[in-house]
Structure formats: C-alpha cells, structure tokens
Computed example of a mutant assay.
Amino acid sequence: MTGSSFRAGVIGTGFIGPVHVEALRRLGIEVLALAGNGAERTAAKARQLRVERVYGSAEEMMNDREIDVVHITSPNHLHHAHARAAMLAGKHVICEKPLAMNTQQSAELVELAAERGLVNAVNFNLRYYPLSQHARSLVQGGEVGDVHIIQGSYQQDWLLLPSDWNWRLDPELGGKMRAVSDIGSHWIDLTSFITGRRVVSVLADVQTFVPVRRRPKRPVETFTGKMQTRAEYVEQPVHTEDYASVLIRYEGRARGVMTVSQVSAGRKNRAFYEIDGARAAIAWNGESPNELWIGHRDKPNEVLFKDPALMSKEARRFSSYPGGHVEGFADTFKGLYGAVYGYLEQGEFSETPDFPTFADGHMSLRVDEAIWTSARESRWVDVSEVGP
C-alpha cells in the first residue's frame, strides 16, 4: 500500500512517537500534527521530524478536524484518556500498549470503539516481523503438528544499573507491573498469534533486583539513561518488577514458560520463542530477526533466512525486500500500519481485522492482571478470574 486518503496525528515526543511518524511516511501517509506535553518541547521535536502542526497537549489535537487517525505514544497512564477523547472526537485510534492501566478502562475502550464504529489497533508490532508471520503459517498449516510446548523469553539490559531510570519505573505512570506489561505482553501476544491459542491460566514468580534507584531531576528518554553522566539524582524506591518467570497453560493441551527481564547484561532487545510441536519445532530470536530455526526429528534441522520467494503468501505480504536484504524493528511498524490503513481504505469495517485490536489489548491486560494476582498470592490463576 502506498498513499492514503486518511491523515494522521501522533501524540508523544519520546522514543516511540518518531518511530510511528517514520513508518507512516514510508507508507505515504501524511502526518499532519504532533502533540506533546508542552508547546515548546513539542515544537522542537516537530521541527526535527518536519511536522508542520504542533499541539502542546493531546486535547488540542482532538479539535483538528483534518486528522482522521490518532496514534497514541504517550506514557501508559494517559492511554485511556487519550484514546477515549480521540474516539469521542470521531477519530480512529492506534494505541501503544498497554491499552490502559487496568481492565476496567480497557473494557470501556473496546465498548466505545464498537459503539462509534471506529477502527482501533494496539501496537503489538512484533507480529509483523516477516518470519514470525511465516512461523504462524507453519503452525496454522500443520507443518509443526499439534503444539505441545511454547517457551522463551524477552530480555533487555537497559535498566540493569541503579543509575538507570525511566518513567516506566513509576507505578503511577507505567502501571503496577513493568517488565511483564512492557515486554512480556509482546511475547504473550506474539506466541498466541503464531499458535492461535490464548492463555488460560498462569503461575508467576517476580523479583525486583534493584530496589532503590537514582532518579534524575530532569527528564530522561527511554533507553538513554545509560548515557547520562552528569545529573542530580534523588534516591527512589522501586516497586515494579525487574524480572518475571511465568508458567502458562494455553488453550488445548499446550503448556508454556516465559521469562522476562530488563536487567540481563548484554541483551539489548532479545525476544525469543521456541514452539515445539508433534512434528517439528520452530525458534526465532528478535536480535537476529531474519533467521528462523526449524527443528526436525528425522532429518537435518533447517535455518530459513528471510526470503519472500521461500516464505508463505501471508508472510510475503509483510516483506518489502528480496532475500539477502534484512528487515527489522522499524519495518514491523510499517507492516502493522499498512494493515490498519489498508483496512481503513477498504471501508468495510464489519470484516475481521488482520491486525491486533483493542480487544487484543484488553485480553493482554487480563493476562497481566492474572500474572499480578498469581505473583502476589503464589498460586495458579485463571485469566477468567480477573477483569470484566
């Protein structure tokens, strides 16, 4: 898809907002405006991104009648209010995860989107790595066989040191869970997408290894804390988890285990999964996203390098370049927004979307709350026990 009659506005000037802007422009979608916290700071970022219209608050952007789709990349605690305001203004919404701070809020957004007949999406972009799309085709096509085990991890190191700080560490801004909500939600959504199986129940163990951190007195953008050398700090107790391991029961007989960590030295952004089936196994590592391992019992194992000529029809749709030309993180946003804006252009909203919607965001929060409850009460918790 190139070009669109739908025009976008982006809320958020931190790490991920500019990623949205870049992906939209690669698709030929006009980004009309940027909104942030404060006109001066937002104007500086808008000049850098060459966005003409600047709004010092999200509320101001909602009054712009020329904006059709609002992309929400603000801190977590603002997602619900921003998504609700956008939909009440008649705008379609693409929201970063988590969709809201709790399942009551996310359920409200699902209902409001349905009432207003608005297209809605949650930014589970990991689905749009071409080889994860191909992995889904292998599972859904029966090549892997009945899924037995879903295992893996999502590891980062950007919060390893006591001097590392980000707003996500504050429960009032990021939510009561951090590593699980921030990266574990991606892993669970991705494995559910590939296998077609939802999480049914969980048993979780969590830990905060850095209980006190040095919080800078000035703002620090995501992933840039380790570059801070001279700043004034305050000692800040931390109440969100650095680590979690979760035993998972999926629909059917499938069983799984997920480990997430934001304090694993050397792991910059390693999303890893292995899916073991009755016929074969597949494994993928997000730090080497153009390779898919395929394991066999009765013949040599394979490594499939991303090549549209060798992948399924569904995966080829999200691969823009020929074999030998790598695609990575930024391309996943392009793939997701291509699907969303293509759906918008099609105009038939009664069809099932081929992208993650608010309903998926709501389910993600239900799983998060089940993990939270399990960790606190040291027991298996069914997802059906929590949330509306």
Rank of each mutant, 00 (worst) to 15 (best):
S4V: 14
A8P: 13
A8C: 15
G9V: 15
V10T: 12
F15N: 04
F15H: 07
I16M: 06
G17W: 08
V19M: 14
H20R: 10
E22P: 02
R25A: 10
R26H: 14
L27K: 12
G28N: 14
G36Q: 04
R41N: 09
A46M: 13
R47M: 06
Y55W: 10
G56I: 12
E60L: 15
N63G: 15
R65M: 11
V69K: 11
V70S: 10
V70I: 15
I72N: 07
T73Y: 00
S74Q: 00
S74G: 01
N76P: 05
H82V: 05
A89Y: 06
H92G: 07
P98Q: 02
L99M: 04
A100I: 01
Q104T: 06
Q104M: 04
S106C: 00
A107H: 02
A113Y: 02
G117H: 02
V119I: 11
Y129Q: 07
R136Q: 08
S137G: 14
G141S: 15
E143M: 14
E143Y: 11
H148D: 13
Q151L: 09
S153F: 10
Y154E: 10
L161H: 09
P162Y: 03
L169V: 07
G174K: 06
R178K: 13
A179E: 08
A179S: 08
H186E: 05
L190S: 05
L190P: 04
T191A: 10
T191I: 08
T191S: 07
S192A: 13
R197A: 12
V199C: 03
L203Y: 12
A204I: 13
D205E: 15
V210K: 09
R213F: 04
P216C: 02
P216L: 00
F223G: 07
T224A: 07
Q228F: 01
T229K: 06
R230P: 00
E235N: 07
P237H: 08
D242N: 12
A244F: 03
A244S: 07
A244N: 03
S245M: 09
V246T: 09
L247D: 11
I248R: 11
Y250C: 05
G252Y: 03
R255K: 11
M258D: 08
V260F: 05
S261D: 09
Q262S: 08
R270G: 04
F272E: 05
D276Y: 12
W284Q: 11
W284L: 09
N285P: 02
G286F: 08
W293Y: 02
H296T: 01
P300C: 12
V303D: 00
V303H: 00
V303M: 02
L304E: 01
L304H: 02
M311W: 03
S320A: 12
P322I: 14
V326A: 07
A330R: 15
K334F: 05
G338F: 10
A339H: 04
A339C: 07
Y341E: 12
Y343T: 14
E351W: 11
P356H: 03
A359Q: 06
S364W: 00
L365T: 00
L365K: 00
R366T: 01
A370H: 05
W372C: 08
T373Q: 14
E377C: 14
S378E: 14
R379P: 04
V383Q: 06
V383F: 05
V383L: 05
P388K: 13
